[in-house]
Simulated assay, not measured.
Amino acid sequence: MVKELLENMVNGGEVKTEKEVKMMAPLTLAYMGDAVFEAFIRNYLILTGNVSVKELHKNAIRYVKAKAQAEIIHELEKELTQEEWGVVKKGRNQKSASPPKNADLIDYKYATGFETLLGYLFYTGKTDRLMEIMKKSVDIINSN
């Protein structure tokens, strides 16, 4: 269901070539990656049980906070292609406009790299790989 929604979102616009996506600002990719991951996590939590919106939000934070995303990307590093890890590093190395409020700077940078990868996969139309990484992300956080 989520995969089809992602494909419709991408196809509703236009799947970009890898060259076009690589020309996009890493923080722009991270911006979309953050939204895609947040929607994925919200859907996952809604489907796992009938709880209040307050509980859903509290549970979502466990997955989307910078520390969790940094942990995810470190766990996934060995499974990523060189190209994917290059995208993570581009996102990680970007200077953000404002320092993180509730996160360690290193975690924040790796979280930005993770979100950049998700945005990259989204815009290149690699929804199978995007879903695989997001599902593994849930497994990583759930195992801790």
Score class of each variant (00 low, 15 high):
residue 71 E to A: 03
residue 33 G to Q: 14
residue 56 L to R: 06
residue 48 T to C: 12
residue 95 K to I: 15
residue 26 P to E: 07
residue 19 K to F: 12
residue 95 K to Q: 13
residue 54 K to W: 00
residue 82 Q to C: 04
residue 32 M to Q: 11
residue 70 A to V: 13
residue 80 L to A: 06
residue 49 G to C: 03
residue 30 A to Q: 12
residue 98 S to G: 05
residue 99 P to G: 07
residue 70 A to Y: 10
residue 88 V to D: 01
residue 101 K to C: 03
residue 85 W to G: 01
residue 97 A to N: 14
residue 16 K to D: 08
residue 79 E to P: 02
residue 58 K to G: 00
residue 26 P to Y: 13
residue 78 K to R: 12
residue 97 A to G: 11
residue 76 L to H: 09
residue 88 V to N: 01
residue 69 Q to Y: 08
residue 69 Q to K: 06
residue 11 N to M: 09
residue 30 A to M: 09
residue 73 I to N: 03
residue 30 A to R: 15
residue 98 S to R: 15
residue 68 A to V: 07
residue 21 V to A: 07
residue 84 E to L: 09
residue 64 V to G: 01
residue 19 K to G: 12
residue 39 A to G: 04
residue 27 L to C: 09
residue 28 T to M: 14
residue 62 R to K: 09
residue 58 K to C: 04
residue 61 I to W: 01
residue 25 A to Q: 11
residue 35 A to P: 00
residue 92 R to P: 01
residue 77 E to N: 08
residue 67 K to W: 05
residue 23 M to N: 07
residue 75 E to C: 12
residue 95 K to W: 11
residue 69 Q to C: 11
residue 78 K to D: 13
residue 74 H to W: 02
residue 33 G to R: 12
residue 33 G to L: 11
residue 54 K to V: 07
residue 23 M to L: 11
residue 80 L to Q: 03
residue 90 K to F: 02
residue 68 A to H: 00
residue 13 G to N: 05
residue 103 A to E: 05
residue 64 V to K: 04
residue 86 G to Q: 06
residue 65 K to F: 07
residue 17 T to A: 00
residue 72 I to V: 12
residue 98 S to E: 10
residue 43 N to G: 05
residue 65 K to D: 08
residue 19 K to Y: 08
residue 17 T to Q: 08
residue 54 K to F: 05
residue 19 K to E: 14
residue 54 K to G: 04
residue 41 I to K: 05
residue 73 I to P: 02
residue 98 S to Y: 12
residue 67 K to N: 06
residue 64 V to C: 02
residue 40 F to D: 06
residue 87 V to Q: 03
residue 69 Q to M: 08
residue 98 S to H: 09
residue 11 N to I: 10
residue 62 R to P: 00
residue 39 A to R: 02
residue 13 G to D: 05
residue 21 V to M: 06
